[in-house]
Design a protein around this nucleic acid. Structure first.
Lengths: 129, 129
DNA sequence: TCCATAGTTCCGCAGTTCAGAACTATTGAA
DNA sequence: TTCAATAGTTCTGAACTGCGGAACTATGGA
């Protein structure tokens, strides 16, 4: 097993970050890692957005996030602890990560709304807003 | 020739945007289109960052930018005028486009600095470590 | 020592991207 | 009208990339 590679922050490229986060599964995983304060292990994500993700695929996804400089992974016993490198990234590319995670949140909310069964409207008279 | 397809703004996805801009040629083209106020035609980009880009490849790149919702293209005589859809995008995903373009600018500046021939330092009496 | 758990690597298939060649569309000149 | 020039698109095969099942490695208990 080759040792885990983490690029130093000045070697991190915009292209690698965007490529890593251009995948719906990876962006969901990453948004979750950013949201949680404590390290997440890989197998927390064996299902993402109610879809099963095979272990091998998951492993690749984590490698791509790691090699793009988005997360830091360290082995801890039998598991892997993954944390985001937000602070470093914020220094290098101010606003980038937050904007992407926010955009992802907006889109997820839209999708959730679109999936809503009956888009019950409030009665006309008592308008919200 | 099929007519040009432009997604409506609410159909634009973060994934498509990130995928489109995860390519060094495309992000360079897009940053340029955003920077210029007037529409740009495709063949302005037959060379990007001093590298020749084949016409067919360029055409694909523009299609991807267009179908991601990043630019609007319209035929104007024999050429194509391309403008960015910044304003709409800013409404849908606030801060996203600006953060990406800024990050790209930072990185380009870094790369330019790294290519500098002699990184002349101010003479520091003692040796350089 | 053996097993369970967590993750990685290998590998074939499917899908994507690249770039050259041929094509279409529009304009302007003869 | 016809022809040529310009700008961009589509087609196509070769190269590349990504997904996921099977086999593997590493670690920690029993």
């Amino acid at each position: 097993m080759r040792p885990l590679f983490h690029p130093s922050i000045e070697d991190v490229t915009v292209e690698a970050i965007l490529h890593a986060l251009a995948d719906p599964v990876r962006v969901a995983i990453y948004a979750d890692i950013v949201a949680q304060d404590c390290p997440q292990n890989c197998s927390n994500f064996l299902t993402v957005s109610d879809k099963a993700v095979p272990k091998s695929t998951l492993s690749q996804h984590f490698r791509i996030l790691r090699e793009a400089g988005l997360i830091r992974s360290e082995r801890c016993g039998v598991e892997m602890r993954n944390i985001s490198r937000c602070t470093e990234l914020e220094q290098r590319f101010p606003g980038l990560i937050r904007a992407i995670v926010t955009a992802h949140t907006i889109q997820s909310a839209d999708e959730a709304r679109a999936r809503m069964p009956a888009p019950k409207r409030p009665a006309r008279r008592a308008a919200t807003k």
